[in-house]
């Protein structure tokens, strides 16, 4: 079957014989090693990018396990100690009738991190395969992942505020649990993972497609 007039070919900087700067977008001849506009280091494709993506992603996933299983908040009221995990806290809020807040906590600390693991993993796997995806789904996914990752930090802030405020000694005291630390690390690691991803690799599939 003949494709009379296909979509206009996508011209990548690499095929044009140029190197694009990921920070400011200026293109240079391949001889340059630092960007003349912003001073960032230039490489056409970062060869070690995927390695770093996987390494940070693994670290993030490992740190996520204790973040889910260990207590996030320890509440002591009149000598009685109660420990709450992240999910436990969200369920507690739900039972009290604060559905909306419970939903925010659940989305920020369970839904977003897990879908981020999957999304980064998918992106890192899919740039290796030569499967061509029509449209710009992967570019969009990359931007969403980069934008949304930091919002998971919300639960760590909640713990910090609560435990700095509720300090009445014996009457009522809230202390942060170990999960707060590992959760913060998990979010930071996955943010680094998303940042190490070289988005230009997504475009390579289009390059192969045309030739």
């Amino acid at each position: 079957m003949e494709d009379a007039r296909g979509t206009p070919a996508i011209l990548t900087a690499r095929r044009a014989g140029l190197v694009g700067c990921t920070r400011c977008g200026r293109v240079h001849s391949p001889r340059e090693s630092t960007c003349r506009r912003c001073g960032s280091a230039l490489t056409s494709r970062d060869g070690a990018s995927l390695q770093r993506v996987w390494a940070w992603l693994m670290a993030g996933m490992i740190a996520y396990v204790p973040a889910m299983t260990f207590p996030m908040l320890m509440t002591t009221t009149l000598g009685q100690q109660q420990e709450n995990t992240i999910v436990g806290g969200a369920i507690h809020l739900f039972d009290e009738g604060s559905y909306f807040v419970a939903l925010i906590v659940f989305v920020a600390s369970v839904l977003i991190p897990i879908s981020k693991f999957i999304a980064i993993g998918y992106l890192a796997l899919s740039v290796r395969s030569s499967v061509v995806i029509r449209g710009h789904g992967r570019q969009r996914l990359y931007h969403v992942v980069e934008f949304i990752g930091r919002w998971s930090m919300i639960d760590v802030f909640v713990v910090a505020i609560l435990s700095s405020l509720v300090r009445f000694g014996f009457t009522a005291t809230i202390t942060p649990g170990i999960a707060a630390l590992s959760f913060a690390l998990s979010v930071a690691f996955t943010m680094l993972s998303a940042q190490s991803f070289d988005p230009r690799m997504i475009w390579d599939a289009y390059e192969d497609d045309d030739t």
């Binding site: 809020l93 009290e96 604060s98 807040v101 925010i104 906590v105 980069e146 990752g149 930091r150 919002w151 930090m153 919300i154 639960d155 760590v156 802030f157 909640v158 910090a160 505020i161 609560l162 405020l165 509720v166 009522a172 943010m191 940042q195």
Partner: peptide
Amino acid sequence: RPWAMVEIFILGAAISLVKISALA
């Protein structure tokens, strides 16, 4: 830019308010 999280912090403060308001 991605590491400056004041806007996330303020949302965290709002959630803390809901959590504490039951107690105090």
